[in-house]
Structure formats: C-alpha cells, structure tokens
C-alpha cells in the first residue's frame, strides 16, 4: 500500500511539479498516473523511491514514512521500470535480470532458478537469451526483460514510467496483455505512468488524472468516463467518449454478459424500457429521471429485471477492459 499525503515537489528552479497530492494505492492494485506532458507524473513516481526528494508532505509505504527508511533498502524493495528500458549494455540478459538478487547476495542456484521462472513468465527461453547482450534483442524483448528485471527480487511494489511507451502499437498491446497476465500471478502494488488514454483504461484499476501537478480526479476508469468530475476530465478523455461507446451496445448484450438486477416489486410508479434499447439512451434516462432503477421489459411486456447506473458502469468497465479500442477517441 502506498499513501500520498499532501505530497509536494518544488524543484530548485522554483517549478512546483506536484502540488499537495492525496491518494492511496491499495495492495495488489494497478494505479495509472495519467495527464498531459509536464503535469508531474514522472516526478510523483520518482518521489516514491526517493530518486527525487519530497519537498513537502509525506509518502507512506505500508504505513511507514518513506523518509524514515534507508533509501538503498527502500529501492531494493521497489521494482523500477523506465521507458528506455535501462538495460546495462555491459551485462548479459541473465546478469541484467539478476542484478538486484545479486546485490542482495542470493546463491547461484537460487538465482538460476529465479531467472528461468521469470523468463518463462514472458515466454522467452532462458537458455537462448540468457547469455545474449541487450543489443542483441528486439525493442519489445528488451522492454520485457526490463519488466522482469524489476520483478526479480519479488518486490511488493513496482514503479513503471511509460514502460511500453517506445513500442509500436501492436507490440505494445501484446505486452500490456502479457503484463496483466503476469500481474494476476504476482499481485503487485503498481504505480504506472502513461500518457496514453487507451493504455490507462486497459491497465488501470484506478486512474490518477493530474494537471499541472494537481490531482483532478482519482477513480476507476469507468467512473472517470461516465462521471467526470470536471470539464477538464471530460475534455481529457474526449467529449462523450464513453457515452458514444455505449450507443454501440444494447441492454440485451449487457444482460447476456453480466445479467440484470432483481427489480424491487415494492416501488410503484417505475419507468420501463425495452431490452433492445441501446445503453446510451438507458443511461441518460437513468441520469435525467434520477431514478434509481428502470425496469427492463421484452417486446411482449414481460419484466426481465432492473437496470441501474452501477450495472451500466460495471458493463462499461468490463467492455473497455476487454476491447479498449472499442472506446473511440472523442
């Protein structure tokens, strides 16, 4: 768990890159730091492993003030992945991946086993690639090695600064999927910087949207899409981005995938809606009528169940995660 408490960074030149940011990353969550260039994402990230000093406020890691810990110890418990992969050209792939275990004094045997396990995770042969040097790998391979290097000593926390930013879109998507798969297995607490909205929606359990060093909104991707707290947030994701995507789906699709809610027989005066209606209309109905639920009926007028804002959101979340490209740019 990482807690930011009024965290602030003012650089020597006087630029305040991060202004009193408050939020908590729960254990096992991926939180994506998102925002326009220069909004302070990298700065915020680098304060966690103390590559940047904290000017004001605190960062707590598992309840401990990061400043009370030894910076070297702290960093060894935090995996760090950067865009330009940062692989050391003088070391083989195996030496690169095993550097932190090496610093921690692991035995040869333990390192060997760990290396094989990590390489298996990214489906690369440890025998084939172990003795190669970084320049003998493709960009995508290098980046994946960068990721498993950060995982090598099994740190509970990972910091990733646009780790897939330099890759072309097709490879990027593949590696994102692969990484989500790995995350299911390793369950790390992850702070992930991105400036790509699709990537953020795809990867994030929650998104931190920053603007000029200030936190604009901290929410799940679907919340942000459906209920942006400000015009800036709405604009950033592209006007009606989510709403537009909803018009592509009907209530029936939703019913098939996540099912409807039980309807409350007690409420009289309820509104009904046909199951073939698209979700966009449904949502605006829910929002405009300020009704908690709408009864869904089929063509014969049979009540199939109820639909609520929560359910639409859940579906949205599900959909955009599975196929982020369906969410069109505004």
């Amino acid at each position: 768990m990482i807690t930011f408490d009024q965290t602030t960074k003012t650089y020597e030149g006087g630029v305040t890159a991060v202004k009193g940011v408050d939020f908590t990353v729960e254990k096992g969550e991926i939180v994506v730091l998102l925002g326009p260039s220069g909004c302070g994402k990298t700065t915020l990230l680098r304060m966690v492993n103390r590559l940047e000093t904290i000017s004001d406020g605190k960062i707590m890691i598992d309840g401990e003030d990061s400043m009370s810990l030894d910076s070297i110890e702290l960093r060894r418990k935090i995996g760090y992945v950067i865009q330009s992969n940062g692989l050391f050209p003088n070391m083989t792939i195996e030496e690169n991946v095993m550097i932190v275990p090496d610093l921690l004094g692991w035995s040869k045997k333990k390192k060997k086993e760990r290396f094989k396990k990590l390489m298996d995770m990214i489906s690369m042969s440890s025998d084939e690639f172990g003795k190669r040097y970084p320049h003998e790998l493709s960009g995508g391979q290098q980046q994946r090695i960068g990721v498993i290097r950060a995982l090598a000593a099994d740190p509970p926390v990972m910091l990733m600064d646009e780790p897939f930013g330099a890759l072309d879109p097709i490879i990027r998507e593949k590696i994102q999927d692969e990484f989500l798969q790995i995350q299911k297995e390793v369950n790390k607490t992850i702070l992930f910087v991105s400036h790509d909205i699709d990537e953020a929606i795809r990867m994030a359990d929650k998104i931190v949207l920053l603007r000029d060093g200030e936190l604009m909104q901290y929410d799940t991707p679907s919340e942000m899409l459906v209920r942006p707290k400000s015009e800036f947030v709405r604009e950033f994701f592209g006007k009606d981005r989510a709403i537009k995507s909803l018009s592509l789906h009907t209530i029936r699709e939703l019913q098939d995938i996540i099912g409807l809610a039980e309807f409350d027989e007690g409420i009289e005066d309820t509104i009904t809606i046909n199951v073939n209606h698209d979700l966009r209309n449904t949502l605006s109905m829910l929002l405009n009528q300020e009704a908690d639920q709408v009864i869904v009926i089929d063509d014969d007028g049979n009540k199939l169940g109820a639909i609520t804002i929560d359910i639409v959101q859940k579906y949205l979340h599900f959909e955009i995660k599975a196929k982020p490209t369906l969410v069109q740019k505004g």
Binding site: I78, S84, F88, P89
Partner: peptide, 28 residues
Amino acid sequence: DENLIDAARGMGMKPVQILFRIELPNAA
C-alpha cells in the same frame, strides 16, 4: 546514458556499485 545510472539508482545500487558495475565497465 543518463537513464542507465537512473535505472541503477532506482534499483538500489550504491554509488560505489554503480561506479564499478556500470560506469567503469561501460567506459572501459
């Protein structure tokens, strides 16, 4: 490359370790 040093610091290498394991081999 500045990024190499950054990566090394980020993973908790001490200055001496960075010198002998990263800087000198790559400047060799």
